[in-house]
Amino acid sequence: MEETVKKIIERNKIIKAIREYFTHNNYTEVDTPILSPSLIPETTIEVFATTYVNPNSGKESPLYLIPSPEIFMKKLLAMGIGNIFQITKSFRNCEEVSSLHNPEFTMLEWYTVGDTYIESIGVTENLLRHLREQLKIGHLRYGETTIDLDSPFEIISVEELFKKKLGVNLSTLINDENYINHILEKQKLLYNKSSNWQEKFNQLFLAYIEPTLPKEHPVIVIDYPSKIKTLAKRHKNPDFSQRWELYIAGIEIANCYTEEDNPKNIREFLEQEEKKKEKALIKHKTDREFYKYFYNFPPCSGVAMGIERLMMIFLNKKEIRGVIPFSIFDSIYPSI
């Protein structure tokens, strides 16, 4: 019981500090729905579905729990709200019971108008330093490692990582389907020839890149291949996207884009992803009108950060359950 109360108090300190940071920097805090009749389709995410029942007609309308507040926050940006942030619950279904996932988790998402993903790095660095100060942590220790938050985060491109760790030219890997199969075979990784490029890339990344990322300081892994479809704007070299991921102590903490703002590209993304979603375990309605907001969308950069994972780092917890009171898995899988 005491553990649960302690968790609440610690979570509160961190959320309060995050709120202070953004408010002090003149971001408007927003508060948007958790239930939505339609979503932005994402092939690699499964959602929770529920139903609204009309008490008189008995008509049932499907509703879905948001996997992230992106859909609403971008609509607000198109309405001219300016810099915004939100700390809200998000939901993801069909994820393995692990030390890093909980079906219900807390997402911090913020958007800075006029910035690109490069400027977002500085905002993130300052956020983390502010948190450390507010929590009165002198030296941030996670397990056996002391994490340096004072030096600028190390920025390393996916291309550099593939060259360093695998001796592989990423552009060749992107453009030659046989080459990626050849590398998988050379590394003796088990794969299915029918897997798509994204899956093969992720397999190599998870086997050889992610486990070797430095743990003594945060790392920004930058410029992912655009073959992994996201709402990030492409670079001048269209093989790459303006996207980074933040790793602290080897844990993926945040994802950032220079946001795609071309309505044609958004529409294409929605159509392609909706089609792929036909194979989803839990189908949902796509917000097909979403692209229309982009006729008025400001250039901006957005960051999505898993707050529980951030809490794990600051509170030195090995398991996400260590920072979630009443975790669902405590009742479904109590022994894990």
Partner: peptide, 10 residues
């Protein structure tokens, strides 16, 4: 269990 940022579970 590992998950890439954007991708299916491995």
């Amino acid at each position: 269990f590992v998950n890439p940022g954007k991708g299916s579970a491995f």
